[in-house]
Structures are given as C-alpha cells and as structure tokens.
Design a protein around this nucleic acid. Structure first.
Lengths: 233, 233
DNA sequence: GATGAGGTTATGTATAGACAAATAGGCTGT
DNA sequence: ACAGCCTATTTGTCTATACATAACCTCATC
C-alpha cells in the first residue's frame, strides 16, 4: 500500500468505505480486526480505531467487543437534517427575509397550554404567533408557547420586529430537545396567514426544548405544501 | 484528579455541556483551552480533545485553530433522523409486519421514468408498487423504480413475499444518496391502498441513491397523516 | 502605511503502551 | 444435561509525547 506521507484516519476510513462500497467486504461479513488493519495500513491501532468508530457512527459498520466489526446489513440508518434558523434559511436561499408578529399574549396556562408545554395549568405562559416571509411570500407560520420560568426576561421582549427564535437561541439555552415532523391540515388561522386552502396539506415541524427538567418552549412550525426538507446521505 | 473513578471523555463532555446549558459559559464566549481543561479534569489533553470534538460535531461549540473553542451562537443546527427499514421499524414498535406486492413491471423507461430515475428514456427499468402493513393496517405505500444496470440480478427477483428494500440493501450498494420529506396529497392509487381519503394529507419521503454516477433506485414512500418522524436533539 | 516574514498559540492528528469491559466459547463439577 | 466459572479475544478508552497545521500577532522592511 502506499504508506505515503501521512496515513491519516481519514484515508483509512475512506479506504474501508470504498471496500464496503465495492463489496470487497460484503454486508454482514466480518472485516479484519483493528490490529490487523493497523498492520496493513502501517498505522497505530488507535488510528484505525478512530476510523472504524466514525464508520460505525455513520452506520456503515457495526462493532461488538470480542466479536469484531461487521459490515452493516442496513447501510445508512440515519440522515441528518439541517435545521437552521428560518431567517438564515431564507436568506441563504437568496430571498429577502420578512417577519410579522401576529399575536402576543401573556396568560395563565389553559389546560391545553399546560399539556402542550408541560407546565402546571395556571402558571403564566407566553403565547406568540408570527409569520416568516421569503420575498414577501409566506414561508412559515409559527405558533409558540414559552415558559417564562425557564427563560428569564422573556416577558420584557415585545417580538415586534424580530422572531422569538433569534432571541431564544441567545438567551434561553436548553439541554434537551425533541423534533417531530408530520403532514397535517392547517388550522383556519394558519391557512389564512400562509395563503393556502383549508384542505391543502402542510408540513408541520414541532419542536420542544427543556432545560434539564423544566420545559422552555414548544413551537409548531407550519410550511406550505411546496416546502422540501432535504438531506444528503 | 481524581475523585471520581474514571474520568472518561463522556463525563467531561457532559460537564462542559452542563456548563453551557446553565450559561456558566455563554453563547459566543471562549471556553478554556484544552490544556487548561485537561488540568482541571485531571485528564490527558487527548481526552479533552475527544470530548470537545464530539461537542463540536453536535453543534454545541465551534472550534478554530489558534483561536480556541467558543460556545455556538446557534445551538443544535441539525437533527438526525433514524431511517430504518420499514419492516424493522414496524417490528420494533411491537406490531406485526405485513407486506403485499401490488404490481411489478419491467418496461422501457417512459419520459417520466427517465426524468425521475435519471436514466435515458427507453432503457429498461423495473417498476414496483407495494404496501407495508403494521398489524394489518396500511403503514407505508411504496412506489419504486430500479435501474437494472446498477443492480445486477434484480430482474430475477419477483418480490412477491419480500420488499425490494430488503433485497437491495444486501445486493445493491450505493455511494451517494438523497432523502427528501414533504407533505402531499395521495394519488388515487395511494389513497386506495392506504385507506385514506383523497384529500387527506400524507407525509411523503423520497429517496434516491447512486452508485458513483449511475442511479440505482428512486422510491416514493407515502405515510398516512398520523405518521410521526421524530428525533431527539 | 502596506506588506510580508516570523513567532506564538490552540487545535488536529499520530503513536505506543496499558488497562478496562464485554462476551463467545470452552471447561468443570454436579 | 446443565449451570456456572474461566479465559482468550476484540473493541473501548486513557495517557503521554510529538509533530503538523492554521491563524492571530508583532515587527521589520520597503
């Protein structure tokens, strides 16, 4: 092999991926152990280990102690989707970003609020509805609940000119989050603000975040039918 | 040192994440260098390095040579969604998996096929339609085109009892892929097989794979409205 | 004042050696 | 036959050291 200048765990990783791709090592089969590979590539075992760990994280191989490393039967088991701030997403696409606050309300949590956000009914919550525009056309409708107990000073913000996300990412850290996508029908309000029909399908993203055990915010983001969520494998 | 039994890069990672989460280190600010952290945690620099690299990959911090490591302004910028084989996804949920082939056709590529799969019109393609069931209820409708030129022996398979995915993952490797999600309305055929109304929204996943420059397969996977695609951040 | 060469510093990666943890498979005793 | 221990193998992780690389900084030079 080429024992060229620097081996690099990256070169090893690519070579192994290549052999898997061209079926030199077939799905389900065991590949040589770290020691053997280290010898073949003229590298330290730690280097081979790093290459294999990254391949395992990518889902290309599965590793078990004492057993060894085998080529995964089900190649890419996960895809990563970028979820940037809407504002950046829109600007990155070359369009002009626009924002409009639709409503803002501080109120004691209704039973629905309580269930949705995860606080006790009656605690103060902040409810926001706003719309994000790309070149003046509706891009995303946002409906959000914020738990002021977990987001200090959020009640001082009016969110007239900037979306809550921009403030939250800088001021309300979280330690745990959950992201869900599904297809839905828009509510009457959503349909009106997105300028779509009531019966038109929409793509909904729902995100919840917690700071340790305390809920921070829950948001429903509604996109018109044309919206695409894409990832490269 | 010590104090604790094993330091572990994981413990260091968690502790750093915790400090970021509770804003001991604020978004945008520099955190101590690897050397300093190594001293604080009583670990080797390599161990701290591993912890920081994982945090960087998760998007929590950004690192630059000579500059240092700073807390990311835009926390988790990406989410990873698992995309297992339908069969496993269904079994993992505790339901019984069912499969039915709806149609299978070898044909010269129509202009639509050619555009969708990325081959020249007139080349032979294999078209499949099938349905995946969970406890007897429709779970996913699958409409797939396969390029026999990139999947040797695919034409010998009848796919009567097993879905094309199970065969493909073991027999048709790919080097590049693309995954897209969006909301849509079902076609008449899709609505019939999924047992949903024509005007009910559905969640569509579309996946294309290539072996180097040659398209392997393109598939449209249609899920009823209830389907949720979830990821933890 | 602009520019470029060095120096300084923080991260990136490699290495060898060691021990830890998981576990398949064999061995042992009942 | 069977349960349980033993051990060899393989990956997981840590340490210590070294050098590579990128980028900010200063300062000399034109």
């Amino acid at each position: 092999m080429k024992s060229s200048a620097r081996s690099s765990f990256r070169a090893i990783k690519d070579e192994i991926a290549r052999r898997i791709g061209e079926r030199t090592w077939k799905p389900g089969s065991l590949i040589p152990g770290e020691e053997a590979l280290a010898a073949e590539f003229g590298a330290a075992r730690a280097t081979v280990n790093r290459a294999l760990q990254e391949l395992a994280r990518a889902g290309l191989v599965e590793r078990k102690r004492k057993v060894g490393t085998r080529v995964s039967m089900h190649p890419p088991r996960e895809a990563r989707f970028a979820i940037p701030l809407v504002a950046e997403e829109i600007r990155a696409s070359g369009a002009e970003y626009g924002y409009r606050l639709i409503s803002r309300a501080e109120r004691p949590a209704t039973p629905e609020d309580a269930a949705r956000l995860g606080v006790a009914a009656g605690e103060t919550v902040l409810h926001l509805a706003c719309i994000h525009l790309a070149d003046g056309r509706p891009y995303q409708f946002e409906d959000r609940l914020i738990n002021p107990a977990a987001a200090p000073r959020v009640l001082e913000q009016d969110f007239e000119t900037h979306g809550p996300n921009e403030w939250l990412v800088g001021s309300a850290p979280f330690s745990r989050g959950e992201f869900t996508f599904f297809a839905d029908l828009p509510s009457a309000e959503e349909a009106r603000h997105l300028a779509v029909e009531r019966h038109a399908p929409v793509l909904v993203g729902e995100r919840r975040t917690w700071l340790v055990a305390r809920p921070v915010t829950v948001v429903r983001m509604v996109h018109p039918r044309e919206h695409r969520l894409t990832s490269l494998l």
